[in-house]
């Protein structure tokens, strides 16, 4: 191989970086899996859980929880929330305020449903992981989000 050729250099640099980074990732304590895992989908939704969980739910399961009076949290930005949201949902942009409000009203083991705009958004999942990190144990991410909910004509609030 002639190292003077630019594309040989590109090849060397990319191969070296990849090998080095995989090695580093394997050795370090906070390495990440090679492929990101999707959230597991819940078989059934429960109000009381025996062990901590963070699961994805379908629209039917979301409606079931909604009818049981579960707290829904809108993880979108306030301007989207103001345009329309699931009736009764909370939209609290400040994480600590949200955390304390949830904790003081219903404790850390009661179910919480999080949603954002739809299948493509990640803010509900991110928020769920943050809440999990603070010790909340019964978290559901409604993947269909606002799009699915409003399309199906379920209760919406101004």
């Amino acid at each position: 191989m002639n190292v003077r050729l630019p594309f040989v250099q590109v090849f060397i640099l990319i191969v070296f970086s990849s090998l080095f980074s995989f090695l580093l990732n394997g050795l370090r304590s906070n390495g990440i899996p090679l492929l990101a895992k999707e959230l597991a989908v819940a078989d059934k939704v429960e109000i009381k859980v025996s062990e901590p969980q963070l699961l994805a739910i379908t629209i039917e399961q979301a409606l079931e929880l909604y009818n049981k009076g579960t707290v829904f949290i809108d993880a979108r930005e306030p301007e989207y929330f103001e345009d329309g949201h699931i009736k009764g949902a909370w939209n609290i942009p400040f994480f600590f305020e949200l955390m304390f409000k949830l904790d003081s009203l219903q404790g850390k083991d009661s179910p919480v449903v999080l949603y954002c705009s739809g299948d493509e958004c990640g803010s509900s999942e991110d928020l769920a992981y943050e809440l999990q990190g603070e010790g909340f144990t019964n978290l559901y991410v409604f993947k269909g989000g606002w799009t699915k909910w409003s399309e199906n004509g379920h209760p919406i609030g101004p």
Binding site: L13, I14, S17, S18, S21, F22, I32, P33, L34, L35
Partner: peptide
């Protein structure tokens, strides 16, 4: 889930 592979390689590169 390819974002993880990119998150591993890109910063080192």
């Amino acid at each position: 889930g390819l974002e993880n592979v990119v998150a591993i390689i890109l910063p080192t590169l």
